[in-house]
Simulated assay, not measured.
Amino acid sequence: MDETLQHITVLAPEAVDALLGGAHPPTATFVDGTFGRGGHARRILERLGPGQRLLAFDKDPQAIAAAARITDARFSIRHEGFSHLGDLPQASVAGVLLDLGVSSPQIDAPERGFSFRFDGPLDMRMDTTRGQSVADWLAHAEVPRIAEVIRDYGEERFAGPIAKAIVAWRKERGPVASTAELAGIVAGAVKTREPGQNPATRTFQALRIFINAELEELQRALEASLSVLAPGGRLVVISFHSLEDRIVKQFIALHSREVFDRRAPFAAPAPMRLKALGRVKPSAAEVAANPRARSAVMRVAERTEVRP
């Protein structure tokens, strides 16, 4: 990949302020669940005390290579997805930051296959060292399953015609192997589209989310955060589409209220586990400088005190 490709970190100062807010012990550990190219991590390290530390996660080997350039002894990284957050000890973390989705270097590298704007192999794996590529999956998946994935993960109303067109191409010409081929198939199957949106946008989003199990990983990480966050620790999540944001919003809402057991009306309610601290959108100035920030939503919650 061209190392000149740059990623502009979205909501960087707001996210770091939210993550580090509150009082934390001098030995506190913070987690950056999506290192990417280190935009948030470097800002966090600038503000940590000498005894505090930052642990990062990332599935992308290129992100791991970029992280190797950080020589700060307070920093470490794991070549794993952030769903491995649950491997950490209970109540051992003072803050968790999750910056979801795909980074600009990934999108802008044709060999990664994330974008319909460049012709390249139809890969889309976050971790190129393991797992099945989109091309591998489409080579064998049948129409109902392809349609289900494109509909559920892309909210694409033409999922059925797209799935049929993909399988018809496969039968006539062989497996769909490149991003240009897939984009062309989708364009032929989608008859109308919102102004300014490429017909392939939702299909590419759906296949990327599916092949990387992004929503399932997000759910596991959110649940793990309840265990690993110490009381007063912050959960900060930046999402870029409605499927992710809905999961985060509902998770915070669910755990931000006391739960009464209707089968035991006189029992004390289960305590709320999170306190919602707010929702932040990028400023107009940030969106003007970085159009990819326009759909971002940041939600912040704080782990409440655990009752005996």
Rank of each mutant, 00 (worst) to 15 (best):
L97S: 07
G174D: 08
Q62R: 15
E111C: 11
L229C: 07
L207S: 05
A293V: 04
T34F: 08
S92R: 08
P26G: 14
P265H: 09
G86S: 13
R151W: 14
A177W: 00
R307K: 15
A180H: 02
F30A: 05
V259C: 02
T304Q: 15
H84D: 14
A68Y: 08
E111N: 12
G232K: 01
S242V: 09
A270D: 13
R294M: 06
S92G: 11
G86I: 08
E305C: 06
D136R: 02
F35C: 01
T34V: 03
A187K: 15
L54T: 11
L19P: 10
A276F: 10
L98P: 09
R173Y: 11
P105Q: 11
D60M: 13
T201L: 12
V280K: 09
G233K: 03
D32Q: 06
F82Q: 01
V259F: 14
V228D: 09
A230G: 08
A141D: 07
D60W: 07
R299G: 05
T71Q: 14
P105F: 12
V237Q: 01
L48M: 10
L226A: 12
Q219C: 02
A296V: 14
R112E: 05
Y153E: 06
A147I: 00
G154L: 04
S133P: 03
V248K: 14
G188D: 07
A276I: 01
Q106T: 13
G101R: 04
D152F: 02
P89F: 05
A183N: 02
A65Q: 15
Q219G: 11
G36A: 07
R257M: 12
M272G: 11
D2A: 01
E155K: 14
H84C: 10
I146E: 05
S225R: 07
L45P: 10
S76K: 04
L20Q: 04
H7S: 03
T179E: 10
L5Q: 08
S92F: 09
V149E: 07
V248N: 14
I77C: 15
W169A: 03
G184T: 03
V149S: 06
L218A: 11
V10F: 02
L45S: 08
G33D: 01
L100K: 06
F116M: 06
N212Q: 11
G36N: 05
P231E: 08
K59P: 00
A230P: 02
P175F: 09
D87G: 12
G174H: 05
R125N: 12
G278D: 08
P110Q: 07
S227R: 15
R173E: 11
S256V: 07
G81A: 12
D123G: 07
A267M: 04
L122G: 13
S227G: 00
E214M: 13
V167L: 03
A141K: 06
A187M: 00
E223Q: 15
A147T: 01
E217R: 15
R151S: 15
K281G: 00
